[in-house]
Every structure is written in C-alpha cells, then in structure tokens.
C-alpha cells in the first residue's frame, strides 16, 4: 500500500496515559493493522501486534506506539514542560476521513465563521489576511506564522471579540500544534494540539490535547469546549469528497487563505508521506 512503509516510521497516539486498569485488554487498529493494548500494573500499557510487542512511550499525557524498531523521534513541544500550564487530554473523537484531512482542517482558519459560528469566528469578519507559511528544511516541519483572525469568544475570559494570533506547526504527518493568544496571560500562548491515530487510510481517531494557562475553568469545561469544536469539525470532515486527501489539487480551487493546506500537501508529497493521500486528481 502506498506510503505504508513511510507511515510505519512514525509514533502514533493510541490511548490516554493511565486510562487502563491492570489486566484490561483493548483492541484497536493502527495503519490498518490490528493491535492490542494491555493494561499492566500501575496503569502502564503495553502494545502487541500479532503477538509481538511494539515499542511504547508515554508523552504529552498519551501513550504512543510505532511499528518501527528505529522510528523517527517523537516531536518536541518545549511548552509542555513549562511550569504553570494546565495539561488537558481531551479524549478521543472517531472520524470517518483520512487522518491527513483531520490535520489539514486543523490548519484552516477560514472556516471558523461558518463551522464554529460565534465561537471561533463570526460573519462579517471572514477575511483572511496574508500570513507566512514555510517548510522548514532543518527541522522538517511546516510552519505558519502571523496568522490573525477575529474571534467572538476566543476564550471564556475574553469579554468582547478579539483578534487572535496563531502560529501553526505540522511536526509529523499526523500531528499539528497550534499556539494562540492567551487572553488571561498576555505575552504567553496557549498550546492546542491534534494528535491523530490513523485507524486506516479513511478512518482516524483524533486525540486533542492542550497546555493552557487557564485557572478559571474546570477541566471538564475545557474538555467539553474542545470536544464541541471538534464535533463541529467532524461534520465537515465526514462530508469532504474524496475521503482521502488529494495531493494534486486540480479539482480544487485553493486561494491565499489555503496556503497552509497547500504547503502541508507539498511537504507530504516531498517526504513520501502519502498514507491517507490520493496521488491522482479526483
């Protein structure tokens, strides 16, 4: 299968750390391959595929596994270790779309007024101002900076609408990290990530995770806010045609507002990361 060997070199999230009990077994799927999670003592998790143990590590409140004995290193989020941040694993959302489409949608701001109406965006504030996108060869990431968008309710502590600043990183084909204005702590940025578990090329589990400076809202409120946002995104993702991500946009009409999407596709194409992608125009 196209791109499978490349995809096997990466780490993928499969569970929230500490979510299992001793002796529990959970079956799931990764890159179309059945895997089993075994709850060990002290809420540790081991993973097997076809009876063989897979490498496991716990990071960013999630359990990660890979099929490779010599995997690419897990990406770094230095902010995760900063004192004072509240770390929030948001659970899992199953989506019937390519894992790459889930990441691409996360990088998109122009949909805020229509999909997350009156929360992350609102008409008539629909214009997307120019921003910068680059593929950073040295760290092999896609980075979008100077992204600005008007938001009616960027956070609960923000009374009126504010213009929110965003920076996006694509740190692995199925991992995206965004940094956005943090209303209660000017000068700092909230970190919101999307970790995607590819069940197969057309189905994924999305594990959002946040590292915030928010001492006002309860953990449950923060999780339900993020889940609400992602369920709204799911209504889009499950209705985009085709279900895989086309790396040839011949049948689409990208504009400047889609710059991050096109840079992401170029980067996937360049790196041969085509698991979940279509290589012909459909």
């Amino acid at each position: 299968m196209a791109g499978l060997e490349r995809a096997k070199e990466d780490w993928y999230p499969i569970a929230i750390a500490g979510s299992t009990v001793d002796g529990e077994q959970l079956d799931t799927s990764l890159l179309g391959i059945n895997i089993t999670l075994h709850g060990d003592k002290d809420r540790e998790i081991s993973v097997t595929a076809d009876g063989n143990n897979l490498p496991v590590q716990t990071r960013y409140d999630h359990v990660w596994t890979t099929f490779s004995e010599n995997p690419r290193p897990l990406f770094d989020i230095p902010e995760a270790d900063e004192a004072g941040r509240v770390l929030v694993p948001c659970g899992v959302v199953r989506v019937k779309c390519s894992p790459l489409r889930a990441v691409e949608n996360f990088l998109d701001i122009a949909h805020f007024p229509f999909v997350h109406t009156d929360v992350l965006g609102a008409e008539p504030h629909t214009e997307v101002e120019p921003y910068d996108v680059k593929i950073d060869e040295t760290i092999d990431e896609v980075i979008a900076t100077k992204v600005k968008f008007f938001q009616p309710q960027a956070a609960k502590s923000a009374g009126d609408g504010i213009v929110t600043d965003y920076v996006y990183r694509v740190a692995a084909p199925m991992v995206s990290i965004l940094y956005k204005t943090c209303p209660p702590k000017p000068g700092s940025q909230d970190v919101i990530t999307l970790f995607v578990q590819p069940l197969d090329e057309e189905t994924c589990n999305v594990w959002p995770w946040m590292a915030l400076y928010d001492y006002e809202n309860s953990m449950a409120d923060m999780i339900s806010f993020q889940q609400m946002i992602f369920v709204q995104d799911r209504s889009i993702l499950e209705n985009q045609l085709p279900r895989k991500l086309p790396l040839d946009p011949k049948m689409e009409i990208p504009t400047r507002a889609d710059m991050t999407s096109i840079a992401y596709r170029r980067w996937l194409k360049r790196g041969g990361a085509i698991y979940g992608a279509l290589t012909e125009a459909v």
Binding site: I262, R265, E280
Partner: peptide
C-alpha cells in the same frame, strides 16, 4: 488575489 491563487496552485502542480 487570483494571481496569488494561481501561484499557490503552481507551487504544487500535478503529482
């Protein structure tokens, strides 16, 4: 704006 959209599409092209 359309010239920019054209540049963007040309930056990826067919597979």
């Amino acid at each position: 704006i359309l010239v920019e959209a054209f540049e963007l599409a040309c930056s990826i092209g067919p597979y």
